[in-house]
């Protein structure tokens, strides 16, 4: 319940809509992401990798 309220509050603060029926689905997606994030534990030096970015040629002018 507390987590659900947090989700709603975060949506509210961003000016995003709150549909009661959406909340379990959003919770489920975030749970999947957070669970999947444990896969990065196997790579302790991940923070040293240069993030992939869309390189725009205007950055190189």
């Amino acid at each position: 319940m507390r987590y659900t309220n947090c989700l709603k509050q975060e949506l509210y603060l961003q000016g995003l809509p709150i549909y009661e029926a959406d909340i379990p689905y959003i919770h489920n997606i975030l749970y999947t992401i957070n669970l999947a994030q444990t896969s990065t534990d196997a790579f302790p030096h991940l923070n040293k990798e240069i993030p992939i970015t869309v390189v725009d040629k205007e950055l190189m002018l």
């Binding site: 975060e10 949506l11 997606i29 992401i33 990065t40 790579f43 991940l46 240069i50 993030p51």
Partner: peptide, 25 residues
């Protein structure tokens, strides 16, 4: 689609950068 996108708005920048580091790896 709405729930999929709204979930994305509740992730954070640190996680996003970590995901892009994971992509490099």
């Amino acid at each position: 689609i709405r729930t999929f996108f709204l979930a994305g708005s509740l992730t954070n920048t640190s996680q996003y950068v970590k995901a892009q580091q994971a992509r490099r790896k």
